[in-house]
Amino acid sequence: MMNRLYLFALFLFVSGPSTGQFWHTDYKEVQSIAKTENKPILLVFQGSDWCAPCIKLDREVWSTPEFREYASSRWVMLKADFPRRSKNVLDPEQAEANAALAERYNKNGIFPFVVVLDKEGHVLGETSYQKIGPEGYIELIESYTKQL
């Protein structure tokens, strides 16, 4: 019995990371993946510790098994977080990278802000928080990628 439990725990440990990270934080890495896998990019600007609509969007859509399963095979997910609490502060390099993304794709400082990009980084569509659930976001984001 102990052997089976050990093997199961080992399996979970080994197989967990191989499923791939759902959210990426490095734009260059994401662009490389998008080009290699021929997938569009879903870029989300959020304030994870202060923006109520961002937190709702994460809970109601991004964190749902339905959305995660669908999105992992269709899009490369990129998150640009702008936390305000000192305990959640980003390292300076990540904060600078997120600021550069905001300068390019979110000049108006909207939170949450969802930008759908092609693999080259061209904007295909934009939205913010809507109370449409995972199915609604999948449909909306898919509508932006129809021209691909």
Score class of each variant (00 low, 15 high):
residue 36 T to M: 12
residue 123 V to F: 01
residue 140 L to S: 06
residue 127 T to Y: 02
residue 144 Y to E: 11
residue 25 T to V: 04
residue 88 N to F: 05
residue 49 D to S: 02
residue 7 L to I: 05
residue 85 R to Y: 05
residue 16 G to N: 14
residue 72 S to Y: 05
residue 83 P to R: 05
residue 147 Q to H: 14
residue 116 V to H: 00
residue 113 F to Y: 08
residue 52 A to E: 15
residue 109 G to Q: 12
residue 112 P to K: 01
residue 72 S to E: 10
residue 72 S to K: 10
residue 54 C to F: 08
residue 53 P to Y: 03
residue 130 Q to T: 00
residue 39 K to E: 11
residue 53 P to R: 07
residue 59 R to T: 00
residue 61 V to K: 02
residue 143 S to F: 02
residue 89 V to A: 15
residue 34 A to Y: 04
residue 18 S to G: 11
residue 84 R to Y: 01
residue 83 P to E: 08
residue 6 Y to S: 15
residue 110 I to K: 01
residue 52 A to G: 13
residue 85 R to C: 06
residue 120 E to G: 08
residue 38 N to S: 07
residue 30 V to C: 11
residue 120 E to Q: 04
residue 66 E to H: 11
residue 66 E to C: 06
residue 105 Y to E: 08
residue 49 D to Y: 04
residue 141 I to D: 07
residue 7 L to C: 14
residue 145 T to S: 08
residue 95 A to P: 03
residue 7 L to D: 15
residue 147 Q to I: 13
residue 36 T to D: 15
residue 114 V to N: 06
residue 7 L to G: 00
residue 122 H to S: 13
residue 59 R to D: 12
residue 62 W to M: 10
residue 40 P to M: 06
residue 69 E to R: 13
residue 58 D to C: 04
residue 87 K to W: 11
residue 117 L to K: 05
residue 59 R to P: 03
residue 11 F to T: 13
residue 34 A to L: 01
residue 22 F to W: 04
residue 42 L to V: 13
residue 54 C to Y: 09
residue 8 F to V: 01
residue 80 A to Q: 05
residue 118 D to R: 08
residue 3 N to R: 15
residue 99 A to N: 10
residue 31 Q to W: 02
residue 36 T to S: 11
residue 74 R to M: 11
residue 76 V to C: 05
residue 91 D to L: 09
residue 129 Y to G: 04
residue 30 V to P: 07
residue 73 S to Q: 14
residue 80 A to H: 02
residue 122 H to A: 13
residue 120 E to I: 09
residue 96 E to G: 13
residue 33 I to W: 09
